[in-house]
């Protein structure tokens, strides 16, 4: 198995996440896109680590990313709940309050 395969899978995951973020109006959808991109990055870390002398650093970084993603998801969902309470929707184009 070569490194390129892992990188391509990571790239595909990242692009899917990016696409999701750019096209989804629903905030939870965007959150899911962000999770995809984070996981793509984690995959890249593990792959580089494996093919570069199998150091522990990349693995540690991947675990960090997972923890971070979980924390981020918690905070983001809490914010979304607050938004929902106020606007009764979670579509990002409907919760704009800036004028003009």
């Amino acid at each position: 198995m070569q490194l390129e395969y892992y990188l391509i899978i990571g790239l595909i995951l990242f692009l899917l996440g990016l696409y999701t973020c750019l096209t989804r109006v629903n905030a939870i959808g965007m959150l899911m896109g962000i999770e995809l991109m984070l996981n793509a990055a984690g995959l890249n870390f593990v792959a580089f680590s494996h093919f570069n002398g199998n150091h522990i650093d990349g693995h540690i970084m991947a675990i960090f990313i997972i923890v971070l993603a979980a924390a981020e998801a918690v905070v983001a969902l809490a914010v979304l709940l607050a938004i929902y309470k106020r606007f009764k929707v979670i579509d990002t184009d409907k919760v704009v309050t800036l004028k003009e």
């Binding site: 990016l18 750019l22 965007m30 990002t92 184009d93 704009v96 309050t97």
Partner: peptide, 15 residues
């Protein structure tokens, strides 16, 4: 006018 408040716009700009 740059500040639209739509997250997608900011994403595009970042991209």
């Amino acid at each position: 006018l740059i500040q639209t408040g739509r997250i997608q716009h900011y994403f595009y700009i970042i991209l």
